[in-house]
Amino acid sequence: MAEIAQGGGGGHGDKKVRSKKASTRVDMTPMVDLGFLLITFFILATTLSKPSSMSLAVPDKQNKDQPQDTEPLKASKVLTLFLGKDNTVWALDRIAADDDKAKTDLKKISYGPDLRTLIFQAQAQVDREHGKDEKGISQFVVVIKPLKSSTYKNMVDALDEMAVTKSKRYALVDALTTSEKELLGDKAD
C-alpha cells in the first residue's frame, strides 16, 4: 500500500530534539478507487455504438382523380423479389408473373450470398442486353414485394442488398397483382 514514510532519524546519538516533520504526502489510493468506480459507471451508462440509419424515400401519393400516366416496365429489365416467411425469398428473374414460364422459373433463395449473387447476375444480364440509359445509369430494376408474413428485418435486408449491389432503381411495393397472387398461391400468406 501507499504508506506514508515517516520518521527515520533519531537514535544516532543525536541529542538535539527535533520537531517531527509532518509529511505532506497524501495517500491517493481511495481517490483512485473512486475515480475508477465513476469511470466504470459512466462507461456502462452510456450508449456505446450509435445506431446508423438508412434513408428510405417513397414516391408521392397519387391523386386518385388524376392518375398519372406511367410507362409500364419491361419484364426483361425487372427482377422481382417476393419476401416470404421463414426468411425465404421467391425471385422472378426477368419474367412477367403472367408468363407461362413464370411458374417453373420462380426460384426459392435465401438471404445473404445467394440473393446477392442472383442480383449481380441479373444486373449483368440486363446491362448486356439493354446497356445504360442516357444518364449512364443501369436500366436494371428491382421490385421488392414484402408479403404479409415477412418481417421488418427481411425488408431491411433486401433494401440493404440494394445498397450493396448498387442497384439504383428499386421499388418497394406491397400490393400484389392478380397474376402474382395466382403464381404464389399459398406462399403469399
Partner: peptide, 27 residues
C-alpha cells in the same frame, strides 16, 4: 427484427397520408 411487415406498412401509410415521403430507418 421480428416485427411483421404489415405493421410497418401501416406506419408508412400514416406518414404518407401526411405527405411525408422521406424518412430514416434506424439500423
Amino acid at each position: 427484427n421480428v416485427a411483421k411487415f404489415p405493421v410497418f406498412k401501416d406506419v408508412m401509410a400514416s406518414l404518407q397520408a401526411q405527405n411525408i415521403n422521406k424518412f430514416n430507418l434506424i439500423t
